[in-house]
Amino acid sequence: MWPRTRALSVHLLTATGAVFAMLSLLAAVEGAWSAMFLWLLMALIVDGVDGPLARRWDVTLHAARFDGVLLDLIIDYLTYVFIPVYALYASGLVPGWAGWGILIVVPFASALYFCDTRMKTADASFEGFPGCWNMVALTVFILQPNPWLTLIAAILLSVAMFLPIRFVHPTRTRQWRPVTLSVTTVWMILALTAAWGEFGLGQVLGWSFAACTLYLLCAGAVQQALGGIAGREGRR
């Protein structure tokens, strides 16, 4: 009985992400952007914890009635895509035609990506940009770039969802895992600090946050490139 109860508890933990999504949406509708991101970050923490627990406690064996992967994807689409994209437009940070471009391109591309059966590589990295628009939106709220620059970045990342470019999984990608976990931890601390403090990180912490975000975006591609170089050298 205990293994089954333990496995079911993981599904219950995952499902709390839906509650955090609702609370985040209510905050977004009221224009309480700091509260919105705090709830999104709570959902992100749950998303980072439930996967390792599911694998450790054999959820697919002991609680097979519920599809944890499907449950996770439903919640992720809300917290990674739908609510953050709404926030970019409704906050006024990406208004007008640039905002409409993001409202159309990002949800459309993300809906296709989230049902892509080849989104994971053999080393548990992501094949293509993993639709982490919550991270992108928070970066925009902190750095507040030009709206058209945000739109261009959104289009490029949307295209990157379907390209053979590798992106690291913060906890599962083995290559550089200690560095990636450290960067992810720093990113999460800075993200919570930014959301709590109305996005005023200051110059040093702001650029530190941007550097952590850049690492998480580019580390997989660098690993992929270095692996390709090593493979070519090995064949010589």
Score class of each variant (00 low, 15 high):
119 M>W: 05
211 A>Y: 07
169 H>M: 00
119 M>N: 00
177 R>P: 03
140 V>K: 05
227 G>H: 02
86 Y>C: 06
21 A>F: 07
21 A>V: 06
136 V>C: 04
50 D>Y: 11
55 R>M: 15
204 V>S: 12
83 I>V: 11
201 L>V: 09
11 H>I: 07
128 G>T: 04
9 S>V: 00
180 T>W: 07
150 T>K: 00
5 T>V: 09
183 V>F: 08
81 V>E: 04
147 P>F: 10
129 F>I: 01
83 I>K: 05
26 L>D: 12
76 D>G: 03
104 I>L: 15
56 R>N: 05
39 W>C: 04
140 V>T: 09
49 V>M: 11
74 I>K: 09
231 G>R: 14
37 F>S: 11
49 V>N: 01
135 M>F: 13
185 T>D: 03
234 G>D: 12
107 P>I: 09
93 L>F: 12
55 R>C: 15
86 Y>S: 11
16 T>K: 03
201 L>A: 11
51 G>P: 12
80 Y>G: 02
225 A>T: 14
184 T>G: 10
1 M>Y: 14
99 G>M: 13
98 A>Q: 10
103 L>K: 07
104 I>P: 08
137 A>P: 02
15 A>E: 12
233 E>S: 10
192 L>P: 04
161 M>N: 08
38 L>S: 03
57 W>L: 14
49 V>K: 06
81 V>H: 01
232 R>W: 15
225 A>N: 09
74 I>Q: 09
205 L>A: 15
21 A>W: 08
162 F>I: 14
29 V>L: 15
188 M>G: 03
28 A>R: 13
144 Q>N: 15
117 T>P: 00
151 L>P: 03
135 M>I: 08
135 M>E: 06
234 G>N: 11
95 P>H: 13
175 Q>E: 15
62 H>T: 06
234 G>S: 12
199 F>G: 09
